[in-house]
Amino acid sequence: MEIRPFQTLTLRARRFYVGAMFQVMGRALQAMTEVDGEACRETRQLPPGFLFEMRVLPSGPVMVVEHTKDGRLRFLGTDAPRPINLSIQFKHMVHAFRVVSFQEKTAIAFANERMLVDGDIAYAVRMTRVLNRLETFILPRFLAVRAVKQYPRSLGFVEKTAGAARIYLRVLRNLIGNERPYE
């Protein structure tokens, strides 16, 4: 059956949105490990040079980040310089879209088998916690509660707002090519 132009447009828009969100998330992950001690404590347990990717199967958007050292992550874009250590793969673009548009929580997506994990499960659990923390910081509370299992009681308004501002500032700086990742 022929795909109508409107459907083609929807598919393209969905792909563009997921790709754009991966770009933002990758940069935000890098920024968060520069400003948030708790996220940094989590990522410090990863081996230096550890490569993590999120990918949409079969040939959708990709996001690659590297643990450089001391808990710092660096966004590498869509290409990995060597074999990936941990890959979280969405089975379909629709599944990725549901997660990054906050229609389905990450934990529920795992439970619903929307995603596959290729690599050490312990690291996947750790990276899921880091992604959850990122979402609680960078999303408004009403969206964050849709993305994570429980919104952390300990995260106060001031800490969240200040953290989000610092993360977004660094993402912006990174986007316009003036990043200072290790200050």
Binding site: A107, F110, A111, V117, I121, A122, Y123, A124, V125, R126, T128, R129, N132, V148, K149, Q150, P152
Partner: peptide, 13 residues
């Protein structure tokens, strides 16, 4: 226990 895959399926974080 925090790094065990099963913990993802706990209803409460």
């Amino acid at each position: 226990a925090l790094d065990d895959g099963a913990i993802l399926f706990s209803p409460q974080e």
